[in-house]
Design a protein around this nucleic acid. Structure first.
Lengths: 328, 328
DNA sequence: GTGAAAGCGCTAACAC
DNA sequence: GTGTTAGCGCTTTCAC
């Protein structure tokens, strides 16, 4: 193990005080050009690299931000991770990624372990109960994504917009009975979507039925599709694209044509929504932007609530309501 | 800003020395049960939380590992990130994620910035030139994924196995002319795949043609497909699934049936390979396992070269060679 | 502009 | 077992 070069090694070699070396790297403007240059040269020759943790201790800032997601497996979060990572990097911050395994306990553990090691938290689709949130976060900077709370800043998607477009779209195609394939009951965005759907459908003569809850995975699409068939609807709106894609797979294997016999709408516009069969009509929102905004919020330490627009992306999984004859 | 509770606050309040408090948290077995309990109680009452960075300084270990990927956007890395994060978490480590934007310079910058802040690096599909690798890494623990080098431990996929299965599969279906849709020339795994394909085809009467290089994205699938059509092959093997899926999309829009008129095989078995149209025959490897192994290697500080098996997953994008009549 | 010295919060010998 | 005392590598007053 080659002993680490420190500020003192450089100082000795350069014939200056350690504090001068420190300053050449942290506040170069307070150093005369000549000595600065000299120190930099020596440091480079010795292969000196400032130690981020030693640096963080007296400063009280780590230049590190944490992003907690319930399930790294879920492609929905990839856009978020991407956006957050890029924005953090741009601001000179490092992103720490943690998977809470859909568990409030693990989420709390991660937060406690990370506290002090990061300058702030982005909690995506937090599973922490509302009342626990403030205590667990306790004085740390934190912002919520995909969930709002009175206590913390947040960035959420305006589901109302997208759902209204979705319902308008389906109604315009003649649909009058729609099923909502529900996601986890603990999910804030699931509740938001259902509420938005209810509001949207009030404006039309259309009946909506809530099915589920289903786990938000491709695998759960099968039971979800079957439930929709039993319900006898002509269109379904799924909590997320994973569920929608799984439902399409199931319908296909049962010989039911999408969209000829039944229309399906997803949510999130994840990777793959454009090339599944048929390409999925879905509620799209700029989730990478959500990641970026979340980072901006933690860094700015603002108590804002950012609301991002959503809209319907029409592809090929939705079509006219089947006529009596060709319907099931 | 509520002043942070330190070990000294707890010590004073509990009427013990600071080192006793330290020990109750870092080596509880060296403390009598009674005082330990007392200290824990007081600490809890005061809301004490050990500061990870203060902890890391004297110890020289941060309990943090870094994972660098060229492009977070690429779903291939999702599995890797997943596996790495889980394995790190299991070992009590935190994972730092960085995107190098396919650039050797950014990769180097990230490594330098992170050095000292993490206990080791996992470099996925590193873009660093071979000779730069040892210098940049300079005494840090590091393991390569998807690339091998004489200087660093690594975990790579055995492309030979999968490619042999792919060629056997295609030949058994009557194909005699295959195109390889090449990936980035700087990619180690692209070279490995091409070599494996050449070796595999030597065992048969089959001609292979290398096309490209193409950028490993869905969008590049279109030109890649067109190039394959010009080449007049009956089967294509793509550098990765992104390219394969893009090629299928292009072939579909040109009215060319897969696999009836042309067969396509991908690599990586990414999310979506099972539900694209048609579901993709692809070379699968356990990339999450690669992530786990990489973490194990850094933590164990072993100089091993782990080779993971690959195999062909046959789905519906490959079929019998078209007969003269129905071929283009 | 630069040096000396006192920490940042914690760990780890070393005593007793 | 527990207290004392040096640091870990860096930043940051405070002098000069």
């Amino acid at each position: 193990m080659p002993k680490r070069i420190t500020i003192h090694d450089v100082a000795r070699e350069a014939g200056v005080a350690a504090s001068t070396v420190s300053r050449t790297f942290s506040s170069p403007d307070r150093i005369s050009a000549s000595t600065r240059e000299h120190v930099v040269t020596v440091a480079h020759r010795l292969g000196y690299r400032p130690n981020p943790v030693a640096r963080a201790l007296p400063r009280g800032k780590t230049l590190t931000l944490a992003l907690l997601v319930p399930d790294i497996t879920n492609p929905f979060f990839f856009g978020l991770i991407r956006g957050a990572e890029r924005q953090a990097a741009t601001a000179g911050y490092t992103l720490v990624l943690a998977d809470t395994g859909e568990s409030a306990t693990m989420e709390r553990t991660h937060i406690e372990r990370l506290t002090g090691g990061v300058d702030g938290f982005v909690l995506a689709s937090s599973r922490l109960p509302d009342d626990a949130l403030p205590t667990v976060i306790a004085g740390q900077r934190a912002v919520l994504v995909n969930r709002s709370s009175a206590d913390l800043p947040s960035v959420v998607i305006n589901e109302e917009q997208g759902m209204r477009q979705a319902v308008d779209h389906l109604v315009s195609l003649g649909h009058t009975s729609i099923a909502y394939l529900g996601g986890p009951t603990t999910s804030w965005s699931n509740r938001a979507k259902w509420r938005a759907l209810q509001n949207a459908s009030r404006r039309h003569r259309v009946s909506i039925r809530r099915l589920g809850p289903f786990s938000p995975t491709v695998a759960s699409g099968a039971p979800a599709a079957d439930a929709a068939l039993v319900a006898g609807v002509t269109a379904i709106i799924a909590f997320n694209d994973l569920l929608a894609i799984g439902a399409q797979l199931r319908l296909h294997s049962r010989g039911i044509a999408v969209p000829d016999q039944i229309s399906v709408v997803g949510c999130d516009d994840i990777f793959g929504a454009d090339f599944c069969q048929p390409p999925l009509t879905t509620l799209a929102a700029d989730i990478e932007q959500a990641g970026r905004s979340a980072i901006d919020l933690v860094l700015a330490n603002r108590a804002d609530n950012v609301v991002l627009p959503s809209h319907l992306r029409i592809r090929e999984s939705t079509g006219p309501v089947p006529t009596k004859k060709e319907s099931r």
